[in-house]
Every structure is written in C-alpha cells, then in structure tokens.
Design a protein around this nucleic acid. Sequence first.
DNA 1: TTTCCATGAGAAT
DNA 2: TTCTCCTGGAAAT
Length: 324
Amino acid sequence: MPEGHTIHRLASALDELWSGQRLRASSPQGRFANGAESIDGQVLLGASAHGKHLFLPFAPEGYMPLDGPGVTWLRVHLGLYGSWTFDGDASFTAPHAIGAPRRRVGERGEHPLGRSGGSALVGLGVGTGGGTAPGKWSPSEPRGAVRLRLLGEHGCADLTGPAACELLDADGVAAVRHRLGPDPLRDDGEREVFVANVRRRRKPVGELLMDQAVLAGAGNIYRAETLFRCRINPYRPGNATGVGRLRAVWDDLVPLMTYGVETGFITTVDAADVPDVLDEGDQEAARWYVYHRDGRACLRCGTTVRRAEVGGRTLFWCPRCQAR
DNA sequence: TTTCCATGAGAAT
DNA sequence: TTCTCCTGGAAAT
C-alpha cells in the first residue's frame, strides 16, 4: 500500500528524530528476535529510502565511517500491509501512523478532502503517551504483531506486517539498490534512465510503471494518476511510447510525489478540476482522477472511468482522456 | 462468523 | 501466469 512517498517521509522522520542516537531494538512478536538483538543498543547513523525500501544504518557507539564494515543495515519493506506506529512523550513528534491506511482509534489525518490534514509532522496528541512531559514517558505495551520495536529516550516506533525486515552489510544494500530503477524522489534519480527502461520493453506502459526495476517508488495509485494526467493509454507498449511523453511522466511524478512526502497523502487533482459540488459518496473525488473511481464520471470529460487488471493489480483509467 | 480486499513483490509453476 | 506471505478493516454471510 504504502508507495514511495510514504517511505521517504518515514526516512526523514526517523532521521530527524533519532539520527545519532542510541536505540534499543526488540521483537515483541519474536519473528525478528535475532536481528533485533544484533542492533540493540547501537547508534542509528541516519535513514534513507530508495523506492519503497527503507534503509537504516546502525553501528556501535563511537564507530565512525558510515561505509565501514562495522555498519549493519536494516532494510524494511512494508509490502502491502506493513505499517509503523509511533508513540512517545511531548517532545517526540512523528507521524502517528505511517504505512498501510488503517484507521486506528483516535487516529488523525483522515482528512475529508485531502488538503487540510497532513501537516508535515503530526504531533502526538493522540497516542497513549501523547502529551506526557518529556522524561516521564514510558513505552506502552505493543499492540498487535509487532515485528520490531525501536525505542529511543522519548519515544518508540513499532513495525508490524512488513514484507521484509532484515539485516544487510553494505554489499547487500548495494545489491538491493542495483535491482531498483531510478526514484523520482532521490537526487540521484535519472529521468533518462527511466525513459530508456520503459522504451526497452514491449509490455504495456501501465504495467511497466509498477515495475520497480523500471521506476522505483510509484505504486498503484501514482501509476493510474500520472497516466491520466499525462493522457497516456495504459495499454500502450513501452517501446511505442514517445520519449517526450515519458519525460512528461517523470516530470509529473517528481512534484506529485514530493507533495506526497510533504503531506503524507497522495493528492493528484488540480484545483481547477475539483468539482464544486461533491456527490454523496464521492468524497474521494477531490483527491484522485481515476483511482477507485470506476463507474463514475471522469472529472475532466464525464466519460465513465473504467477498471481492469494490469500487471496483477487493478488499474483505473478514462478511455476518452487516455485514448492514446 | 467468514470472506474479501488493499497504496506489494518474490517464488513457484 | 499463478501462488504465497505479511495484517487488519470492512463487507458479506
């Protein structure tokens, strides 16, 4: 569920909260007991993301070189269901929950129209420990199947349901990154590499945008929405898609996903296209053009939005706006 | 209560 | 292509 913007947002939150600090690591659920044990008590050196992968380098206190052999890298991939839940005292601000779009009791951020909610870092007025004076906070019992709990002085982060949670050395990290295509959210993401990756293949462009080796970070919502915004037919073969059109996709994704990192939400509809009156049950109309809007009228042309399975996932598109 | 489904991806066939 | 795994909420029974 969580697309690349979620992971980048998470990486900056963790970097801001804990970089340079010594953390406790444990696996309340037990399934990552060995891994947690080996980084327990080490210092978090930073946090970064490539596509949907989160990388957290750990080293013993006092260890210097970030690329040295003493660094242990934690790699987390949330998959479809994974999520992080934060809790802590008043000085500990983080997204309350980040990952799969579950509603938890008291959770904020279920914004009605996709614009008011989602400040960059939501304070913890809602967690069990929220508002506790600094220094007086103590971690609550983990809820659910917590694979990994990272605990700092002022708060903790609980990881549940990840598709991947493993320890790697620097070579292992390089190997994972080698399999990934360029990420529009990274400084080293190269547009022309993405363009070449698509044009090398015959598969439908709607399928290629989900392939993390072609483009890292976009998921099912961003693929549907950017194809709509760029008016590209999802069934068009990659090698028959013009360079200019693919550059437009990349140039569209960069600000779109950057906005996602800043707000925590995927919002893709330009202000001019927001309907004046929202239909009953059409609350998502102001957020997305086509995603989850099958059977309803296209916000731009009124044609009925369609859905179909492409690349093993449900794709949504407007047959008129995206005729070619 | 059971089943289905979801912003994912690797392995198996 | 199909299967499988990770979790939890909503819909269906």
